[in-house]
């Protein structure tokens, strides 16, 4: 199963980063960065299958999947801001992590505007 490999890599990264932290404090962040990236890259294959599966469903039922595309974008932005803020918190400066989170939220909000307008149109048409 994939999960055993992921857990072992995560623990390995934690131990190595502690060891290196005492020897050479500068190398603490790159190790965490690369460990997180490796774990994310391992999980991305399953995520690709999910996205293709949903796209197939949409293409079969010939719904307009423009909505789904923007939802995908929002997912991607959330995915990356979570990754970046995690690294910032690990390195100790939580203020930058909060700023990254705020920026991510604003980007997600402006990405979701078309969905909101679509929803309002549907509501107006119902009335």
């Amino acid at each position: 199963m994939e999960i055993f490999k992921i857990i072992s890599i995560a623990l390995l990264t934690c131990f190595l980063s502690i060891i290196i932290k005492n020897i050479k404090p500068e190398f603490h962040i790159p190790i965490l960065l690369i460990g997180g990236t490796i774990i994310l890259l391992m999980v991305i294959d399953q995520l690709k299958e999910i996205v293709n599966y949903i796209l197939n469903i949409f293409s079969k039922t010939n719904l307009d999947y423009s909505m789904f595309i923007s939802i995908l974008k929002i997912l991607g932005v959330g995915y990356l801001t979570e990754f970046a803020s995690g690294i910032c918190i690990d390195s100790g400066n939580t203020s930058i992590a909060d700023k990254v989170l705020i920026a991510g939220k604003i980007i997600i909000l402006c990405l979701s505007l078309p969905i909101i307008t679509n929803l309002l149109d549907i509501i107006v048409s119902l009335l």
Partner: peptide, 18 residues
């Protein structure tokens, strides 16, 4: 490729320290 990059970085760190 996955996990030996982490070992490489740890090795480089220790090497530069020495």
């Amino acid at each position: 490729m996955d996990y030996n990059i982490i070992f490489k970085i740890a090795a480089i760190g220790i090497l530069t320290a020495v």
